[in-house]
């Protein structure tokens, strides 16, 4: 039998990043470990020239542009990488997809502090009962605005990144501020 190929460093890293993202979204509220801290790993695992991306950080925008993705405004982006949201109103500019094509809703990646701040109760698919988490660093009224904007199956996916930790909140999750 021929020798099997070994994964390159890039392949191993992107594979592990996706596995973390997949499980983060499958089990909302449970944090997963990314192979490297920061949002750049998510960019290289998901983006290529088929994507429209919006990056707040100019350094990250350079990395995203190198993948071939088009740099566009928030409204046109299918992937958004933000550091901190200026206010809950910024969510109004995020693509929610349509009932016909729910998958065109955007993926929003932003930084937050996990394990401190506002207490949230997440329920829905992927939650065995309800999951309580604490998230700080999001603007006031963020979760209320998210609930107001999204009409399932339209919506956006949210990944909160804190260093090398990621927490996923799919559109199917109900988030209650407690």
């Amino acid at each position: 039998m021929t020798a099997h190929p070994a994964p390159s460093e890039f392949e191993a890293r992107t594979n592990a990043t996706f596995e973390a993202l997949m499980w983060a979204l499958s089990r909302p509220g449970l944090t997963r470990d990314l192979p490297a801290p920061g949002q750049a790993g998510i960019v290289e695992a998901l983006l290529d020239r088929e994507c429209n991306v919006h990056c707040a950080d100019p350094d990250l925008a350079r990395i995203a542009a190198a993948t071939g993705a088009a740099l566009v405004t928030q409204e046109q982006a299918d992937h958004l990488f933000l550091d901190m949201l200026p206010g809950a109103d910024a969510l109004r500019q995020i693509a929610l997809g349509s009932d016909l094509y729910p998958e065109t809703g955007a993926t929003l990646v932003c930084n937050a502090r996990l394990g401190q701040g506002a207490a949230l109760r997440i329920s829905g698919p992927g939650c065995n009962g309800a999951v309580d988490v604490k998230v700080a660093g999001l603007p006031d009224g963020f979760w209320q605005m998210r609930a107001r904007l999204m009409r399932y199956p339209m919506g956006f996916e949210l990944f909160l990144v804190a260093g090398a930790q990621v927490l996923g909140v799919p559109r199917s999750s109900q988030v209650e501020v407690i």
Partner: peptide, 15 residues
């Protein structure tokens, strides 16, 4: 792989 990753994430988000 990247395309399947993106689509899988959306599929999980809209069961």
């Amino acid at each position: 792989k990247r395309e399947i990753r993106r689509k899988t994430l959306k599929a999980i988000a809209v069961p």
